[in-house]
Amino acid sequence: MSGHIVTVDRIACDGFGTCAQLLPERIILDEWGYPIIDPTPVKGSEAQHAKRAVNACPRLALKLVKAPHEAPAAARPVAQRR
């Protein structure tokens, strides 16, 4: 799962926030509780946490997909980082 990026199905997502607790390296929550995801691919030990976060989502909204060679078209600069 290394080299994969975390993606979310925006319609399935209900803003539980489980993902942000299990993968704070990539996911933070906006003021309404919905995930802002860093599209940087997960590497090494992060991959394990990413998998747990994906499996823990109560709505199964998260997915790990292969990182495309160039930046995904839908990626927007994340306004804030920790």
Binding site: F16, G17, T18, Q21, L22, A56, P58
Partner: peptide, 18 residues
């Protein structure tokens, strides 16, 4: 509890689910 998002700082959402 998972459905309703009953969680606190000591019992975070992810803990309840897992």
């Amino acid at each position: 509890a998972t459905t309703k998002g009953w969680a606190s700082s000591r019992w975070p959402e992810s803990v309840v689910t897992l």
